[in-house]
Deep mutational scan, measured.
Amino acid sequence: ENLWTTASTFIVLFLLSLFYSTTVTLFKVK
């Protein structure tokens, strides 16, 4: 379960960073 928890945390952080960079890009375009 420890490995699954680590993987889940990594996926969440990846999605958050992806969402953040997408938002920054949209604001830069405007």
Rank of each mutant, 00 (worst) to 15 (best):
Ser17Lys: 05
Ser8Thr: 15
Ser8Tyr: 14
Thr5Glu: 10
Thr23Trp: 09
Leu26Gly: 04
Thr9Ile: 14
Ala7His: 07
Lys28Asn: 06
Ser17Asn: 06
Val12Leu: 12
Thr9Met: 10
Phe10His: 00
Phe14Ala: 00
Ser17Trp: 01
Thr25Ala: 09
Leu3His: 06
Leu13Tyr: 05
Tyr20Met: 02
Val12Lys: 00
Ser8Trp: 13
Phe27Arg: 06
Thr23Gly: 12
Thr9Ser: 09
Val12Ala: 11
Asn2Phe: 10
Leu13Asp: 00
Leu13Pro: 04
Phe27Pro: 01
Thr25Trp: 06
Ser17Thr: 10
Asn2Tyr: 12
Ser17Pro: 00
Ile11Met: 11
Leu26Arg: 02
Phe19Leu: 13
Thr23Pro: 02
Phe10Asp: 02
Leu26His: 05
Phe10Ala: 09
Ser17His: 01
Leu18Glu: 02
Thr23Ala: 14
Phe19Gln: 02
Leu16Thr: 05
Leu26Trp: 13
Phe10Tyr: 12
Val24Arg: 02
Leu26Asp: 00
Leu13Met: 07
Leu16Tyr: 07
Phe10Glu: 05
Asn2Leu: 09
Lys28Pro: 06
Leu26Gln: 02
Leu18Ser: 08
Leu15Met: 13
Thr6Glu: 06
Ser21Glu: 02
Thr23Glu: 03
Tyr20Ser: 02
Thr9Leu: 12
Leu16Gly: 09
Ser8Gln: 15
Leu3Asp: 15
Thr23Asp: 00
Thr22Pro: 03
Leu3Tyr: 09
Ala7Glu: 13
Glu1Ile: 07
Thr25Cys: 08
Ser8Ile: 15
Lys30Asp: 07
Thr23Ile: 12
Trp4Asn: 15
Ser8Pro: 06
Thr6Val: 15
Glu1Met: 07
Leu13Asn: 02
Ser21Arg: 01
Val24Gly: 00
Phe14Glu: 00
Ser8Gly: 13
Ser21Gly: 13
Thr6Ile: 14
Val24Glu: 03
Thr22Gln: 07
Ala7Gln: 10
Tyr20Asn: 01
Leu18Ala: 08
Ser21Ala: 14
Lys28Met: 08
Leu26Phe: 14
Glu1His: 11
Leu3Gln: 14
Leu16Ile: 14
Lys30Gln: 12
Thr22Gly: 11
Thr25Glu: 01
Val12Pro: 05
Ile11Phe: 12
Thr5Gln: 10
Val24Tyr: 01
Leu18Asn: 01
Val29Glu: 03
Val24Pro: 02
Ser17Asp: 01
Leu13Cys: 08
Leu3Pro: 15
Val12Tyr: 08
Thr23Asn: 05
Thr22His: 04
Thr23Met: 14
Leu18His: 04
Ser17Val: 11
Thr6Leu: 15
Val12His: 04
Thr25Met: 10
Leu15Phe: 10
Asn2His: 13
Ala7Thr: 13
Thr9Glu: 01
Leu13Phe: 02
Ser8Leu: 15
Lys30Ser: 09
Ser8Phe: 14
Trp4Arg: 12
Val12Glu: 01
Tyr20Ala: 04
Val24Asn: 01
Thr5Val: 14
Leu16Trp: 04
Leu26Pro: 00
Ser21Ile: 06
Thr22Phe: 15
Phe19Arg: 02
Trp4Pro: 12
Phe14Trp: 07
Tyr20Gly: 05
Phe27Cys: 08
Ala7Arg: 06
Ser17Ala: 13
Thr6His: 04
